[in-house]
Write a protein that binds this DNA or RNA. Structure first.
Lengths: 160, 160
DNA sequence: TATTGTTATACTCTATAACTATA
DNA sequence: TATAGTTATAGAGTATAACAATA
């Protein structure tokens, strides 16, 4: 399921945001899948290209857990798009180095991402485009800046 | 994790929609939890109050799977907020009848939902409020109306 | 044969716990 | 002691498969 449907609600902002983000996400996933990437792989590639970054740094940027990062980097390595290299300053850390093939793919994926976003924005009348982006930016920085964290799940120890 | 962070992207609409919807969802969940409801329970209560509806009808309205609906109705029954009643016209179907207590809770939950939405909208400058809602409504009806469906997961048969 | 609702459970996703190597 | 990265897996969420009752 995706979202809560509207009720007597003044404006069902929950529905609007859930629905639009879900559909956009599905479009993005489908578009990136055509060149064999997930949104996360794209995200890591792009930020790893900008400068030398470790897995932890890339995980923070993409708001992923470090264990999710491991899986994402595994996928990138398997496709020959990136490599783990030892950091010259910290022998615990791995720099994610984008390969030549990875750089090419990243360029293509950025075009795809931009197109999917532009198609959505351009579907709106002129006078709504700029304001939509401005309002969402403001919300995401201010009132809807940080999630209320859900109560921690206490988990029992691993077997063996 | 929540969203993909911005890149060189013109405007990272994915990030904006994912982030705002995620944070709003977390706020709504926290607010409704104070009276023991989930967003789904609220959704079912409200739509079951409007008119006589079966589980399937309520599932469609809330965009849930029928098996998710079973769980949601179980929760409502356990709390004494709703009851399953046989339909007078179709002996396979169950009408979800909201109890008196359920109606009271629904009234309170609707106040909560409206407040959470209003707080978000009111955090914006006057000139952005209306346009934001209009643009999101347009997107959710038109360009971002229907998700690209993901490839079906083929599952093996149940054991035994 | 098709549909409503139910149970059982397969699968995906995410993140905790525990561990190794290093700081 | 604390941190980067890894592995194993627990747990939540969701939806498919199968089934009983009924249309």
């Amino acid at each position: 399921m995706t979202a809560m449907a509207p009720a007597r609600t003044c404006t069902d902002l929950s529905f609007l945001l859930d629905h639009t983000s879900h559909v956009l996400r599905s479009r993005m996933a489908a578009a990136l899948a055509e060149i064999g990437l997930t949104a996360r792989m794209h995200c890591v590639l792009v930020h790893a290209l900008e400068e030398e970054r470790t897995q932890i740094q890339l995980a923070e940027i993409g708001d992923m857990d470090k264990t999710t990062m491991v899986v994402t980097v595994d996928a990138l390595e398997k496709e020959g798009l990136a490599e783990r290299r030892p950091s010259s300053t910290d022998r615990r850390a791995r720099i994610i180095a984008v390969t030549e093939k990875g750089a090419e793919v990243a360029e293509r994926s950025q075009v795809i991402v931009d197109r999917v976003h532009r198609d959505a924005i351009d579907s709106l009348p002129d006078d709504e485009r700029e304001v939509l982006v401005r309002a969402l930016t403001r919300l995401s920085r201010e009132h809807l800046g940080t999630p209320v964290e859900a109560p921690q799940v206490v988990r029992r120890a691993r077997q063996k």
